[in-house]
């Protein structure tokens, strides 16, 4: 098969459809750069979606739990080896993604006799100033996008990503406390998962609709902040208890 280009292309296309279908029911995850730090949020049904990677780096992912775990371990291994052989300051998401994770994902996706990773993920790296924060979105095929500050959304469908990103850019105040910003993200999550329209304008302080609170009662809302300022070397702080009610 591999020596016949057309069949290989067809196999890759089938594979793309298959992976997109598999992660199509995934729950969106968010990363936003605030004055206080980078907030990551995901809503799951038990398995974790938001993780600490290193001192200033964290990830949020949707997809198959086993693949999320594989990617998480790869990133943690690479970050700690880098920190040990060089220094903690040398660990950054740009290098973790572009020289480590992305080639691995691409290879797995294009090696048609190998299982692909069924995962889309966001990575955040907090800096001294929100405009220097690094947010990265990595797709299951190894493609990735890096931006400084702002908002990033990973959702099963591209139109969902566009919708939520535009709405959050217009409605999410960078000065909000992480706990309040998390409520805004939950409004966006609700709209993406239920198909209800996004509110015209988010009210301050944000209050979750009763129906959403009810919907979240049997789910696990995970949120964490990479704090911009703090005495700890490790800046990852889970927001607990979470947010509903």
């Amino acid at each position: 098969m591999t020596e016949e280009p057309f069949r290989w292309l067809e196999a890759i296309a089938n594979r793309r459809d298959y992976v997109q279908q598999q992660i199509g029911t995934g729950s969106p995850v968010f990363a936003v750069s605030l004055e206080a730090g980078i907030l990551l949020l995901g809503v799951g049904s038990g398995q974790s979606k938001v993780f600490e990677i290193f001192d200033r780096q964290a990830m949020a992912a949707l997809g198959h739990p086993a693949d999320i775990e594989r990617v998480r371990q790869m990133l943690i291994d690479a970050a700690h080896l880098e920190a040990f052989t060089r220094a903690s300051a040398d660990v950054n998401v740009r290098r973790l993604v572009s020289f480590g994770l992305s080639p691995q994902l691409k290879q797995s996706f294009e090696q048609i006799f190998q299982a692909p990773f069924m995962i889309d993920l966001l990575l955040g790296e907090v800096a001294e100033h929100p405009s220097k924060d690094v947010l990265v979105k990595v797709n299951f095929d190894g493609g990735f996008k890096i931006q400084h500050g702002g908002v990033m959304v990973a959702a099963p469908k591209p139109e969902q990503v566009t919708l939520a990103t535009d709405w959050l850019k217009a409605n999410l105040d960078q000065k909000l406390k992480p706990e309040s910003a998390a409520l805004v993200l939950l409004l966006a999550w609700n709209s993406l998962t239920s198909g209800t329209p996004l509110p015209e304008k988010s009210e301050q302080p944000v209050k979750l609709p009763d129906a959403l609170v009810e919907q979240l009662s049997d789910k696990v809302v995970e949120a964490a902040v990479l704090e911009r300022k703090g005495s700890n070397v490790a800046r990852y702080v889970p927001l607990m208890p979470l947010l509903t009610g």
Partner: peptide, 16 residues
């Protein structure tokens, strides 16, 4: 000390 610092952090992050 460096081995301990990195390995304790590694365990905490990888094993949650």
């Amino acid at each position: 000390a460096r081995v301990m610092q990195v390995s304790f952090a590694y365990y905490r992050r990888s094993q949650l």
